[in-house]
């Protein structure tokens, strides 16, 4: 391609440049990881939302997903392991004008941060939680976690995981979340729409995103290359909007129910507090 032609066809600027901290790129995520496309879906949704970017803050915990806050050119808080939600709670209450988004992993949010997750849902704290679930602790080289399917192998379940996992949508719904959806990192358009809905939702909104971890979880469970793992997610995902979150459990090698499970309105923590005083 000659230079003239490339100047026409290839833009020097990426449409998302303004949303990313260019000086922090390249990111640390592995090739084949779903986090890149997830971040893209988030930025697209944010662009469509019309939210004032100076009033959007992202809070992360620790882990691969925990790095998301660091790549977005927004007010970003990279907190301690599991503590993104209580930090986000304080941030929202300290300045209720902010749209506060938690982006973190399954281990961070529902293991070490599990108590915070259910209580923020219970009190309907007005924050959006994007939970990227790769079924293991990727950052620390693939240990089992609270979402690891029974039977799956990880570095700390070498004989196969003997514990039953949490289903994030079921946990969120049972705890009182106003919006609960699940997609895989392959459903980028539907995911973007869901994130947009979650951002616009008042109250505790949760979007779980199933994401491949070819480096650890995929490898340990013989799911093949990153591409094969994605193909598996693609072929085994079943869209069931409005279905019972109790039926959203994920078995090793089984189907992955995706869609929007819950979308309802109820007073947020601050609404209720104002009314009670």
């Amino acid at each position: 391609m000659n230079e003239e032609l490339s100047n026409v066809l290839i833009s020097k600027e990426h449409p998302m440049d303004d949303y990313l901290r260019e000086d922090r790129l390249p990111h640390i995520w592995c090739s084949g990881c779903g986090l890149g496309t997830i971040l893209t879906s988030f930025v697209s949704a944010l662009q469509k939302s019309g939210l004032d970017r100076d009033k959007v803050a992202v809070v992360s915990g620790i882990g691969c997903t925990g790095r998301a806050a660091g790549y977005l050119y927004l007010d970003g808080f990279h907190t301690t392991h599991g503590r993104a939600i209580p930090f986000a709670t304080g941030l929202k209450l300290g300045n209720p004008e902010l749209k506060v988004v938690v982006i973190s992993g399954d281990g961070d949010l529902v293991a070490i941060g599990g108590n915070h997750f259910i209580h923020a849902a219970r009190r309907n704290m007005d924050i959006t939680v994007i939970c990227v679930n790769n079924f293991n602790y990727g950052m620390t080289s693939g240990q089992m976690g609270p979402t690891t399917p029974t039977g799956a192998r990880t570095s700390t379940s070498p004989y196969g995981n003997h514990e039953p996992p949490f289903s994030v949508p079921y946990l969120a719904a049972a705890s009182g979340a106003t919006y609960v959806a699940r997609w895989t990192s392959l459903h980028i358009r539907r995911l973007e729409d869901s994130i947009l809905e979650a951002l616009n939702k008042k109250g505790f909104s949760v979007v779980e995103i199933i994401s491949p971890c070819p480096t650890y979880y995929g490898k340990k469970n013989k799911m093949g290359s990153a591409l094969q793992q994605m193909k598996y997610y693609h072929e085994n995902s079943v869209i069931r909007h409005g279905s019972d979150p109790a039926e959203s459990g994920i078995d090793l090698g089984g189907e992955i129910v995706v869609g929007c499970f819950i979308n309802k309105d109820k007073p947020t923590f601050l609404d209720s507090q104002k009314r009670s005083v």
């Binding site: 930090f87 304080g90 929202k92």
Partner: peptide
Amino acid sequence: TYIQMEDEIASMNAVLGASWGGARA
């Protein structure tokens, strides 16, 4: 604003968050 958190770990984090939100916490 007052909030009774689920434990003291959460309390400390909420205080930090609120401070970054601009409040004396």
